[in-house]
């Protein structure tokens, strides 16, 4: 049996587009990427089920002329699972938007910590003790806006790891009492 070339090309394009979109930062685009990839997989299942023949339902077509029903059954299951997951990712994207007013996937904590440490390095290497506080202030201005914003976010997220304590850093006892 020779497989259908159009289907193969469509599958390839869908996979490529899906992978491209998954590498994006916005969660909605990632979701679209996941959907494209799952559709590409559906086409793969159609391809592997062999030549296109009759409907695999007893009574609708003679038994020796039916398509292979097993890939269809498998992929129906996968579609149902995919539907559930799509709903969940949509909810995630919505919640991210509610919290941040965007749906960008953020860097992980370790990355942010490294950024913060690198930033401290930058500050300390330009710091010269003779020249008073004004210069060191200038030095920290050199750090780009994105860097400092990300570092501030990192600080925040890192504190959140330990619960609600971020709200009142001045009175550490308050933190434990609120437990």
């Amino acid at each position: 049996m020779s497989p259908n070339l159009t289907l193969i090309i469509t599958m390839g394009v869908l996979f490529a587009a899906g992978v491209y979109l998954i590498l994006e930062r916005s969660l909605t685009r990632i979701l679209v990427g996941i959907l494209l990839m799952s559709n590409a997989t559906a086409i793969l299942f159609i391809l592997i089920s062999g030549p296109n023949r009759g409907v695999p339902i007893i009574g609708m077509s003679p038994e020796d002329q039916m398509s292979d029903p097993l890939p269809q059954a498998m992929f129906l299951t996968a579609i149902v699972i995919g539907l559930g997951l799509t709903g969940f990712v949509l909810a995630l994207a919505h919640r991210t938007w509610q919290l941040n007013r965007n749906d960008e996937v953020q860097d992980d904590i370790e990355d942010r910590r490294i950024i913060r440490l690198a930033q401290r390095d930058k500050e300390s290497s330009t710091y010269e003790p003779d020249e008073g506080p004004d210069d060191s202030h200038e030095a920290s201005d050199e750090v780009s806006d994105t860097d400092s914003r990300q570092a501030a976010e990192a600080e925040e997220i890192y504190l959140q790891l330990h619960g609600r304590r971020i709200n009142d850093p001045k009175d550490p006892d308050e933190e434990v009492d609120s437990e």
Binding site: I22, L27, I30, I34, M37, S38, T41, L44, A78, L85, F88, V89, L92, R95, T96, L99, N100, V105, Q106, D108, I157, Q160, L161
Partner: peptide, 25 residues
């Protein structure tokens, strides 16, 4: 659905879904 859990969960979900797709393929 707190901020940090949503952030961590997003990565986890996307990684999980991609590995599942790979398994399915």
């Amino acid at each position: 659905g707190t901020r940090s859990r949503i952030r961590a969960g997003t990565t986890y979900v996307v990684v999980g879904v991609i590995s599942s797709t790979l398994f399915l393929i």
